[in-house]
Structures are given as structure tokens and as C-alpha cells.
Design a binder for these strands. Structure first.
Length: 475
DNA sequence: TGAAATGTTGGGGCG
DNA sequence: ACGCCCCAACATTTC
């Protein structure tokens, strides 16, 4: 009989529109789907919230595979060792996967391929979790894009997603299934205390992603260009964790939105606004590909000498949502409770950490990495650097968000703050965004420094301090 | 994918 | 009627 193929799942935990899976099932040989939890040193371990998501996503993938007469084999350890062993054990002749573009993962994957080849196992990889592979997109001069505008121009118009690959109905199964870890053994989800109780509304997995995409297009795509900035409204797609783990592909999202615009279910500008967000996601991946140190070093080199402050109490107040600035605290508490934060608010809290507190963006990046269910190496690092002013096409350093104005503008009724900072719920808008009007506080049951913190920094003073610090980098 | 400072304009109050 | 001031509203520039 034909030797089986190993289908190595990574950030592509879906059956539809999956190039490697499609090739494997087309080959007519038995297919053994496998996921390896690789916790070797050198690879950044997933954060807590992402591990929570991964558990659900793997469970969903296994369930979907079983509907096709297949199943997911789970293994833990160094992929370099695990896959050759599994191939030998199952008599597989080849391993197929979809490519990733993070430098550390690519280096690891090269080693995996070599290890397999040494053992006489063939490998084949396919375009992965991106719209366009980073090395396939160059400027006219052959370099990499440094500003989003030019990148987007080069991507938007020529880009034509290929036809979606169908999910298989049946998958050819091997005579004998290899042994698999039990997902629960991996303890990807917390025991007690269960800090993930508030994550319950999420539905990890391909089915959840497809539903989310459909609901987004129906309910939030009309008006998206405006409403995506409103954390008080259900105006964003919330597709980020599904895209992060490849439960849907960016091309699927792109096509679905283009189709919606084509049938007039959404305006052109709303559709463009969403595609642009996919474009930023793409830009981040390409940046990391071309600048492998993006996770740890400032993209703009002059920021190596930026005078970041060390401020443990400040960092902790920010992490816990106790800065005394309601829109910041609401965001940080939403993050902690749900594993997700609205994108507008991500910018506000990131600006606050790096500019009002002058804390190194890497501390914020690390916190997001641990607490976000959608934590993605490229997006996280590139966007933190963008806000901090040291990234590609970054906001100029003097673009310092005023948390009060941002709150008034994007949460005009204070509904978002009320939801996440309930101790301020009785303050009327717009005062809720600047809770230091003592005439209003008392009737609303707010005692600054007691029921809600005093602002840990004065906005005007912090702004001046940030401008001074940045002036030193500039000069 | 800002905010604050500074500049300009024009209406209204007033001597 | 006129000049003057004030200041809101808007535009521009500066950080």
C-alpha cells in the first residue's frame, strides 16, 4: 500500500483553504495530521492567553478532522526530533506544511527539513499565513517597503486571492493511527484560579472563525470605516485570534469582504477600510521578515539610545488598569478579563505606557504577548514600535494621545468605561473620562485615591517630559 | 491611525 | 458710522 504523508499543522489550524492539506489529500495516500507543541529553548513560548486559545483551536481541529474520518495526532517536544521519529514510526515518506515567516520559526523549520532529509523523508511546504509571501514583494529598487502607503499601493490593486481551496469531505486514513498525547495533558488552560473565565464568549476553531466572519460582514462591515474606532460599539471584526492561528486565512477574509462589497452588502469605503487592516497585518509580517530583530530591537536605530525609565509601580498600575485614566484602565481590564482589547484602545494604552510613563515598549509588548489571545509576533512587535515612535512608518514621536480627548471622541457616552470600570459607572459623560471634577465625584460615589486611583501622572507634565526625552533621541 | 500652540477671520458689544 | 476689543470658530504650524 502507499506510504502515508504527515501533515504538519502549525499556524493554519483549518481544513478549508489550506494548501498543504489540499496537496496531501490530493496525493491519494493516507494522511496523518499532526500538531507538535515545541517548547524548546530558542523559540518564544506562547503566552498564557494564546495557550488558552490554542487548546480550543486544537480541540476544534480534531473534531473537524474526525468528521472526515481522520484525527489529529498530538506530540510534544523538539519538532526536529519528533517528526523524524513519527515518520519512522508510521512509515511516512513525506511531511507537508504551510510556511511561516518569523525568523526564529524559519530557522527552526530549516533544521526540521534537514533532519527529515537526513532520514530519507521528503518535505514539501506551501505558502502560509499571509496574503503574499514576504520575499515575493519588493520595491521597484528591489528593497523592502519602509512605509505602509507604498506597501499598500503595491499590494492592494494587483492582489488577487486565488480561488478558495475546499475543505475535504473525507481524508484518506492510515491503517494504524500513531499514538497521540491527550490534549488535557498539555495543560494549555489554567486550573485554579481560572483567570480565563471571562474568555467564554470566544469560540476558538475554524467553525468559530467562519461564523465570526459571516456575522462581521452582516452586522459590522456596514459602517466599519467609522465604527471600527468605537470601543463602545460592536464595530470591529474580532477576527484577530482566528487569523492568528490560521483558523481562517487572510485570503478568505479578503474574498468575503470583496464579495460583500460587490453585492452591495457594504459600501466601498467600508470594504476598503477592512482590507486596509488586513494590509497592516501583512505589512507587519513583511517587516519582521526583513528585519529579524524587530521583536527585540527598535526598527529605527536612533531609538537604541532612548532614555526609557524603569518604573515597576507604574508598569504594574498600567497592567492592572489602575492608572487613574478611565479609557486606559478600561482597556487594560478588558484585556485581562477577555484576552482581547479594542484596537483603538490598544493604541491609547500603548501610547500611555511609552509616552506618559516612558516605559520601554518591550515591557508592553511582553504583557500583550502574555495576555492577548491573538498575540502574534509580527503584529505585536511592529505595532508596539509604531506607537512608540521607533517603528516603520511610525507615528511621529510627538504624537502623544491625550487619554481624555481620546475617551471623549471614541467613547462619547462613556459606555465602554462603564462596562470595564464599574466604579465610575455613575459619573455622567463626558466627566467620566476626567474623573477629577470633585463636585461630580461625590454624588457619583467616587472617592479618588480610594474607590478609584488618582491619575498616576499629570497629563500636561507627562507630555512635556516625553517631548524632552524624544528631543534627546532626535538630537 | 494627534494635540497643542499659534494665526486668522468675522461677528457683536461698546465707547 | 467707526474703531477697538473680545473671542469663538476655524486654519495652519509646531511639537
Amino acid at each position: 500500500m502507499t506510504a502515508p504523508l504527515l501533515l504538519w499543522f502549525r499556524d493554519d489550524l483549518r481544513l478549508a483553504d489550506n494548501a498543504a492539506l489540499n496537496a496531501a489529500t490530493d496525493a491519494g495516500a493516507p494522511v496523518i495530521p499532526v500538531f507538535v507543541l515545541d517548547e524548546q529553548p530558542g523559540l518564544r513560548p506562547l503566552g498564557g492567553a494564546a495557550r488558552w486559545w490554542l487548546h480550543g483551536s486544537l480541540a476544534a481541529l480534531d473534531e473537524n478532522l474526525r468528521r472526515c474520518g481522520s484525527r489529529l495526532t498530538l506530540r510534544r517536544g523538539s519538532v526536529e526530533a519528533v517528526l523524524p521519529a513519527l515518520a519512522a514510526d508510521s512509515g511516512a515518506r513525506a511531511v507537508l506544511w504551510n510556511r511561516a515567516y518569523e525568523p526564529a520559526t524559519r530557522a527552526r523549520d530549516d533544521k526540521v527539513a534537514s533532519a527529515l532529509h537526513r532520514n530519507g523523508i521528503a518535505t514539501q511546504s506551501f505558502a502560509g499565513n499571509a496574503l503574499v509571501e514576504p520575499d515575493a514583494m519588493r520595491t521597484g529598487a528591489g528593497g523592502s517597503f519602509k512605509v505602509f502607503g507604498a506597501f499598500w499601493k503595491a499590494l492592494r490593486k494587483p492582489y488577487r486571492p486565488g480561488p478558495p481551496l475546499p475543505a475535504p469531505e473525507r481524508m484518506p486514513d492510515p491503517k494504524r493511527w500513531p499514538a497521540s498525547d491527550r490534549l488535557e495533558e498539555w495543560a494549555l488552560r489554567p486550573g485554579e484560579p481560572d483567570w480565563a473565565r471571562g474568555f467564554a464568549k470566544w469560540r476558538p476553531g475554524e467553525g468559530g472563525g467562519i461564523d465570526r466572519l459571516a456575522r462581521f460582514i452582516e452586522h459590522a462591515l456596514p459602517g466599519y470605516a467609522i465604527n471600527r474606532n468605537r470601543p463602545d460599539l460592536p464595530g470591529s471584526s474580532r477576527l484577530s485570534p482566528h487569523l492568528r492561528f490560521g483558523e481562517i486565512s487572510p485570503a478568505q477574509a479578503w474574498r468575503a469582504v470583496e464579495d460583500a462589497v460587490a453585492r452591495d452588502a457594504a459600501s466601498d469605503s467600508d470594504g476598503e477600510a477592512f482590507l486596509r487592516e488586513l494590509g497592516w497585518r501583512e505589512f507587519c509580517r513583511h517587516l519582521l521578515f526583513h528585519f529579524p530583530d524587530l521583536l527585540s530591537r527598535p526598527w529605527r536605530q536612533e531609538f537604541e539610545r532612548f532614555p526609557w525609565r524603569s518604573d515597576r509601580p507604574g508598569l504594574r498600575a498600567w497592567q492592572r488598569g489602575r492608572t487613574g485614566y478611565p479609557i486606559v484602565d478600561a482597556g487594560m481590564r478588558e484585556l485581562w478579563a477577555t484576552g482581547w482589547m479594542h484596537n483603538r484602545v490598544r493604541m491609547i494604552v500603548a501610547s500611555f505606557l511609552t509616552k506618559h510613563l516612558l516605559i520601554d515598549w518591550r515591557a508592553g509588548e511582553a504583557w500583550f504577548w502574555d495576555t492577548l489571545i491573538d498575540a502574534d509576533p509580527a503584529n505585536n512587535a511592529a505595532n508596539w514600535q509604531w506607537v512608540a515612535g521607533c517603528g516603520a512608518d511610525a507615528a511621529p514621536f510627538f504624537r502623544i494621545f491625550n487619554p481624555v480627548l481620546q475617551g471623549e471622541r471614541f467613547d462619547p457616552e462613556g459606555e465602554y468605561v462603564k462596562r470595564w470600570v464599574p466604579e465610575l459607572a455613575r459619573l455622567p459623560a463626558p466627566d467620566i473620562h476626567r474623573p477629577w471634577n470633585y463636585d461630580r465625584l461625590r454624588p457619583a460615589g467616587v472617592i479618588l485615591g480610594k474607590t478609584y486611583p488618582e491619575p498616576i501622572v499629570d497629563h500636561a507634565a507627562a507630555r512635556r517630559r516625553a517631548l524632552e526625552a524624544y528631543a534627546r533621541v532626535k538630537g
